Amino acid sequence: MAPQIDLDPSHPVKVAVVQGEPCWFDVDGAVQKTCALITEAGQNGAKLIAFPELWIPGYPTFVFAHTTKTVNDYMLKYYHNAIAVDSEHMATIRKAARAADIMVALGIAERDWGSLYMSQTFISPQGDILLHRRKFKPTGPERIIFGDASGDCSKNVVQTAIGRVGGLQCFEHLQPLLKYNTYFQGEQIHVASWPCLFPPVGEMPFFNTVEACRMATHTLAIEGGVFVLLASMVQTDKGLEANGLLPSSKDVEGEIPHTAVVGGGLTVVIGPDGRTMTEPVPVDWEGLVYAELDFDQIYRAKQWIDPVGHYSRPDIFRLQVDSQVQRHVVAADQVDADGYTHISRFPELEEE
């Protein structure tokens, strides 16, 4: 056996990636389904499970289809089923991770006082929150519902027992500087959290189609020389009805919204050289996709391409990053020790 490199795991790492339909507007059902998937992945020997973007309480497909008045009504219902990081709902998920002895990368609509954010929470096998980040910039109509992140969104990679794990959400994979900053943090396993990914519908732009989104995700794997776990969401008639996207819905007129489609799943694991490592699954299939990650594949890829190492020119190009949280109010005598996150302290889990 070759000598271990740095803090790499000494054996291949088994991972599980979710493809499934969320429990639309049902936070209690969503937590239950999330815990069941965590348990299943742990029982099957996975050391990490990756969830789609906004898994709880589902991606707000309604925002693309309705008038402002109707959207406002849906938003209130959505807010009630979002999840706070220090809530009992999150504590239940953390306990499930601890019981299954598995790391969890979870996509949530995060409720923080009166605002919502698109967030990823990385939970350790001991149930600790290792990393919590908000989406850098919500895309297009998402800005109607969600707020921007602060500087802590740039700290999106964490050292774990299974390597350096990080992630981005949806169109963050089209942000060149954000991706470059991710590579610089030495990421090895990347959680690409996506919602439903659909084929072209009407006049929707190509970059919003499943083909383009997959291209962007494969590009990150190639550029970063990392394993990518693309977790995606499925929408059935249940989702169409919940989001008011059925043809009979009052506000859905003219061209069908691109979110008013059944299917949307494209969960896959991608290797550090960009190749697809797992068999394709149907777009309406629900379950867990598994893969074994051999870290030597990373170093084979980086022998050729390492954009923050031997294949870079910092004498010509450099990236400046401000990772501090820009707080709304700062008292004159306040000392911010780390500026790491908008949350001053994650709650401890109770001992069982």
Rank of each mutant, 00 (worst) to 15 (best):
T209F: 04
A2T: 07
S193R: 09
T219M: 14
L266T: 09
P200A: 12
Q303T: 04
V281L: 03
A16W: 01
V210E: 14
G244D: 08
R300S: 11
S124D: 04
V325Q: 08
E255Q: 13
P205W: 04
G186R: 07
W24R: 05
L48C: 04
I49C: 01
V157D: 07
N208F: 07
L174R: 11
L130M: 15
E253G: 00
A36F: 03
A105S: 09
E21T: 03
T70H: 10
T236S: 14
G186L: 05
P138S: 08
A82W: 05
S232D: 05
D322R: 06
A2I: 04
L240D: 11
L54W: 00
A109H: 02
V15Q: 00
H328I: 00
C213R: 15
L131F: 08
P141C: 01
F136V: 06
V289M: 01
E255C: 00
H328T: 09
V63C: 08
G186S: 07
P347L: 05
A96K: 10
S344W: 01
S248C: 09
A291F: 07
F317T: 12
V17N: 00
H342Q: 13
G58H: 03
A332G: 00
L174A: 09
W55I: 01
R275C: 13
L177N: 15
G140H: 07
A97V: 12
W304G: 02
M118E: 15
N243A: 14
W194L: 14
G20H: 12
F51C: 02
H11E: 15
P176S: 10
I145K: 03
V289F: 00
G244C: 08
D333W: 08
E211F: 11
K250R: 07
H218L: 14
P3K: 06
E279I: 05
A50N: 02
N81T: 13
I316K: 13
I93Q: 01
S344A: 12
H11V: 13
W304F: 10
H66K: 08
I38H: 03
F206E: 14
